[in-house]
């Protein structure tokens, strides 16, 4: 999914960079100081997702979970996923610096779109239907990401078009797997802690945490 440095045309790189800066600006404006720790921890969780390998056929792929990131974080998924990509680019050498903008747009923008499309549906449904919508969000975000990757390759030269098509079709099983895993994750979250997927409810929880909730937290198993 990462595009490397040197493959894309300069126009695509600049366009991606501008879009990424715009998205980052919007995302950071929606990020109050109070939510920086929570967003950072969630961003780290989505980074860890990319370290989890899932078998697909004879090979394995790593999870991306960008659909779930969009559901949980909304616009702030943009900076959260950007940070992950930046760290991957700098410390693992995946992708590069000049394509960072394009890669961020390709991964974070679908996440935000999927988040906004399915957020309301997920928060209003019972766990089973929420899982279905969550699965749709997960599959859709991967589909859009591969589409965006194909578009950025296609815009950079005629010769890339067959490769772009190949990338798209090769990712269809990955879309299915991401959808299934996201559906299961949403199902569990709706059973265990639905507040995570109710964006509006969560903000009010920060402002006024009732003693009952605090007592509940004390009783919960302390995991570190």
């Amino acid at each position: 999914m990462h595009i490397v440095d040197g493959a894309l045309a300069p126009e695509v790189l600049i366009g991606g960079g501008v879009l990424a800066v715009a998205g980052l600006g919007l995302g950071l404006r929606k990020l109050p100081i109070d939510k920086i720790p929570a967003t950072g921890v969630l961003s780290a969780t989505f980074f860890v997702a990319s370290l989890i390998h899932v078998p697909v056929g004879p090979s394995s792929v790593h999870l991306i979970m960008s659909g779930l990131a969009g559901l949980v974080l909304g616009w702030t998924a943009f900076p959260a996923l950007f940070v992950g990509l930046l760290l991957q680019a700098i410390f693992f050498g995946f992708g590069g610096l000049t394509v960072l903008g394009v890669n961020t747009v390709n991964i974070a923008f679908p996440a935000v779109i999927a988040g906004f499309m399915f957020r309301g549906l997920v928060s209003r449904s019972n766990p089973t239907f929420a899982a279905i919508w969550g699965g749709c969000a997960g599959a859709l975000s991967i589909a859009l990401t591969t589409l965006f990757v194909a578009i950025s390759l296609g815009l950079s030269g005629e010769g890339f078009v067959p490769a772009a098509k190949l990338v798209f079709f090769a990712h269809i099983p990955i879309m299915a797997v991401e959808g299934l895993v996201s559906a299961a994750a949403v199902y569990l979250i709706m059973k265990v802690k639905p507040a995570l997927l109710m964006a509006d409810a969560r903000i009010s929880r920060y402002d006024a945490q009732s003693p009952a909730i605090l007592a509940e937290q004390v009783n919960e198993a302390n995991n570190g």
Binding site: V48, I52, V181, A184, A185, L188
Partner: peptide, 14 residues
């Protein structure tokens, strides 16, 4: 694995 990741999210938010 979905349950695993969901649990990871819940715990990380807590």
């Amino acid at each position: 694995l979905g349950y695993l990741f969901g649990m990871l999210l819940v715990r990380s938010l807590e």
